[in-house]
Design a protein around this nucleic acid. Structure first.
Lengths: 155, 155
DNA sequence: GATAATGATTATATATCATATCTAATCTGG
DNA sequence: CCAGATTAGATATGATATATAATCATTATC
């Protein structure tokens, strides 16, 4: 019963790419009715949890390049889900906030995403999910440590 | 100590995307000295484990669209890592095989990828890794089940 | 033997992601 | 206060990944 890709299954990265592809497909289908994509949902959620944060802060949080985030914020703004408020203390910057529609859409989309998550995690115990979250964070941090070795100092 | 993306961390997909990004960055850096990328390494490994398989079979295994696989196979062939042998029983098809160089490069790259994997999984027990592999497969299969519901019958 | 189906390919569209550059505004040292 | 450097956001652009449609040669089916 050896699968054709057994030689790759031993690597965490391979298994993760395949699992993530599955999640991505299901999640995008889940978000489509709301006019959202994975990144726009993520951005909306972070703005909802941190009203008034700036674009560059949001870009840092989501690990997205600033020019790319501009388009994402554009998309959310065009859909009347968020507004760009000129920051009072820095007229270059914008405070990002949800509109009322944005709050409503976020809440509903969040519920749909929770359902999606439950669907994808079917058959897993609560502890399995906890372990997964912790494991993924470990991997992410291991990567960050390695990156720092290669990255030039910023200051 | 609440992170700015706490509202997203609860979802497996978000944590996975971040962890996978870390893996991808480190893995691509790992493979660069061999002239390989993630997909070309995967293809090479599968060909190495299943000498003589056809392009469409390889595409199925790796869940890559056939037109895209053509370029990947081109790349491996140009680097003299594999050959396309005309299949004796079907002159449309090719049997893909490693060259001697391909075997050598695969073995060395495999070692480097194993090191990379160990690096990314630092701090995890063997059981943690097992659990992760199993969990990821569960998620992948949960996705497949859902897709089948949406996909039109093939036959 | 005509028609359909298949393996590989080509051409092409689209999404994603990174880099370089620009502007307007702010900050800092003299 | 002013010149130069820095920062927030935006624009333009290019690389890469991924998906679809159409094509060609060969094989299978009726």
């Amino acid at each position: 019963m050896t699968a054709p890709d057994d030689s790759l299954r031993v690597f965490a990265g391979y298994a993760m790419k395949r699992a993530f592809n599955a999640i991505q497909a299901d999640l995008n289908a889940t978000l489509q009715p709301f006019g959202l994509r994975m990144v726009t949902f993520s951005a909306l959620a972070v703005i909802g949890a941190h009203s008034g944060l700036r674009q560059s802060a949001l870009a840092d949080v989501l690990a997205i390049e600033r020019p790319n985030l501009v388009l994402i914020v554009d998309e959310l703004e065009r859909a009347d889900l968020i507004v760009r408020d000129r920051a009072t203390d820095d007229r270059r910057a914008y405070d990002l906030r949800l509109t009322l529609l944005g709050r409503r859409v976020l809440d509903k989309a969040r519920g749909a995403v929770a359902d999606h998550d439950a669907r994808m995690c079917a058959g897993m115990t609560a502890q399995d999910k906890d372990t997964l979250a912790q494991t993924l964070r470990t991997i992410e941090l291991n990567g960050r440590r390695d990156n720092d070795r290669r990255t030039l100092p910023r200051a």
